[in-house]
Design a protein around this nucleic acid. Structure first.
Lengths: 191, 191
DNA sequence: TTAGTATTAAGACCAGGTTACAAACTGCTT
DNA sequence: AAGCAGTTTGTAACCTGGTCTTAATACTAA
């Protein structure tokens, strides 16, 4: 069960890809090699120690989870004029794109636009009634998508909001959101 | 700046809710109290040490992030007839809803519909060109959203797909997705 | 055989804890 | 003022999962 150094390192990377929470000790056992060798291999492959890995994963996924599910805004809100307009920026990273095409998954565009539209309204219980979005250009990890929202019209609590997302002045998506501002909790159409 | 023990412990929990990656030392400084006290408080509140917190967060969010971003489908695909129709089920949990209203965030609807639409097309590089969605009813944690997609028309690689999401026969969202099947990598309009 | 590389082992050190215990400071009663 | 309880703080020893350095051993090709 002796692997060449090359093979062993590939196996090590594979193991860690499957489960990044393995200690050097566990890795050593799995690969049938000493802990010292595992450390050397990690060094050579520039793989940080378990704690750093855990913390990095935690910190990155945590904030992203928060952004995606726990918080009200997807993307960083950089400007906001309630009832008028707003701007948010979304940094695209590897986690957000399709494995196959390497391009941003549509729902991040939708989510960025959606949450920006809701932020602009900022009623106690604003909610999206409907939306209409088009995607123009592919986006890749490293791109910064700047979304600008503009309120087009307001009619007793019903906002029409236009959102445009650009990467360096090139438009990547364009959408209209119809948002309903509900101030009591009895309304319908929460999104 | 002296807090009662009660208040201090609340403050500690608050701090950790905001940023779970604070060391005892940082907490001690923030609360104006010794490290030993922080440890006692953590003990009393059954809050594990930093490393355990990091690892736990990492382990739990890691799998969820993979489910949310790393895979091609949001929701569980339960039926699929390529080029024709498909069904997916999304279990709504607390992480997916707005804190304030307790209702599902629009982008999960969008994402469920979007990924289902793409799955139905299943070209090598299918991508959403545009969409048009309406949200009808609020959805709460525990609900199972069953989405059914139906291909309406196909014209040289351009699919019109209608998706309906229901919770127990009650319609919660309805959307049309325009998906482009791109078999080479040169096309535009990836979503 | 021997040089050079790969592997292992052994020792000291570190961060961020743990446990156990002692000391000090508080508020309050007697 | 003395005594006591509860709270807070400090100290020392130990643990894990590493670090870094040095040294010894094993393997392999010339």
């Amino acid at each position: 069960m002796k692997l060449s150094r090359q093979k062993r390192r590939e196996a090590l990377q594979q193991k860690l890809a499957e489960d990044p929470f393995l200690t050097d000790h566990q890795l050593a056992e799995a690969l049938g090699v000493s802990v010292a060798t595992v450390r050397l291999d990690r060094m050579a492959l520039a793989i940080p120690e378990l704690r750093v890995r855990a913390k990095t994963i935690a910190a990155s996924t945590y904030s992203r989870m928060k952004a995606l599910t726990g918080e009200e805004i997807v993307g960083d809100l950089v400007e906001l004029n309630l009832g008028q307009n707003g701007t948010s920026v979304l940094e695209v990273d590897e986690q957000m794109v399709f494995a196959r095409t390497g391009t941003l998954r549509g729902h991040f565009f939708f989510a960025q636009g959606n949450s920006l539209a809701l932020a602009v309204v900022n009623s106690e219980y604003a909610s999206t009634k409907s939306s209409d979005i088009s995607f123009f250009r592919e986006v890749r990890p490293g791109d910064r998508v700047v979304a600008k929202a503009q309120v087009i019209s307001v009619e007793n609590g019903n906002y029409r909001i236009s959102v445009e997302g650009r990467v360096q002045d090139e438009i990547v998506f364009q959408g209209k959101y119809f948002v309903m501002a509900v101030d009591d909790r009895g309304g319908i159409g929460r999104g």
